[in-house]
Design a protein around this nucleic acid. Structure first.
Length: 243
DNA sequence: CCGGTTGTTCAGCG
DNA sequence: GCGCTGAACAACCG
């Protein structure tokens, strides 16, 4: 569920509810979701892994974390965290984090930092990276202030595509590699989107969860790296460690 | 049946 | 106040 491209798929799947009035609200969220009753959805937006339901005077932010899920015009066996009924259908969210946002979204979200957004700005990403020279490449690709929407799968696949060892420091990367890292974070995210839509995402993984390097056929290293200690898969032969 | 995870936040500590 | 660590959350797959 969680990475940015999956949120784009969700956004596309709920378009039929744009402009619709919420005629009933349910769910075990404790933040006062009754507030949504009788409200009309003006738009759906997303920023990275955040899914945003917009109303005229506030928004709802949904974050799926690791286990969250949703159903359109269907229900799961477990009770929803938030369920919305419309005249033309229903939308249910499970095991997710839900918050209200009162401020103007343009004030709190930097749309240029979302790898899936039309306003993505590679030059700004480069600036942010250069401001953190000691940061490891594997941490950079999980940093939502730099690459909003990128997650652990995207991290592993991008680092393999550009043949960079995950613990390489940003400052140590040649200019060309730094540019590739930024470019592929977005490129791979769009490949992720297309493959996920076609239910063939896993089939296209070259590194993530893989045992052997598809390029040179030696075993991948599997380690928990970076400040968040997330799973990393890499080839010591193909992926260059820039120290 | 258990172990592990496409993620984030927060408390506690030095 | 900072960075670091571990816990908590919670559902599904193999």
């Amino acid at each position: 569920m969680p990475e940015g491209p999956s949120i784009i798929i969700l956004k596309e799947a709920v378009q039929e509810f744009k402009g619709q009035k919420i005629i009933a609200v349910s769910g075990n969220s404790k933040i006062g979701i009754e507030r949504l009753h009788d409200k009309t959805i003006t738009d759906f937006k997303s920023w990275g892994k955040h899914f945003l339901i917009c109303f005229d005077d506030f928004s709802v932010r949904i974050h799926f974390l690791l286990f969250g899920s949703y159903r359109v015009n269907e229900q799961k066996a477990t009770p929803p965290r938030l369920g919305l009924q419309f005249q033309n259908g229903e939308l249910n969210f499970y095991a997710c984090s839900i918050q209200f946002i009162e401020e103007d979204l343009d004030k709190i979200y930097d749309w240029t930092g979302d790898v899936m957004n039309d306003n993505w700005d590679a030059a700004k990403a480069k600036k942010k990276l250069k401001a953190k020279p000691e940061m490891l490449a594997c941490d950079a690709l999980l940093d939502q202030d730099i690459f909003a929407g990128s997650g652990n799968i995207i991290k592993n696949e991008v680092l393999f595509r550009i043949m960079v060892q995950p613990e390489s420091k940003i400052v140590a990367l040649p200019a060309k590699k730094l540019n590739e890292l930024i470019k592929e974070a977005r490129n791979y995210s769009f490949d992720f989107l297309e493959w996920k839509k076609a239910y063939v995402l896993k089939k296209h993984w070259l590194a993530h969860t893989k045992k052997m390097c598809p390029r040179c056929d030696i075993p991948f290293v599997k380690q928990y790296l970076g400040k968040t200690k997330r799973r990393s898969y890499y080839c010591i032969n193909c992926q260059v460690f820039y120290a």
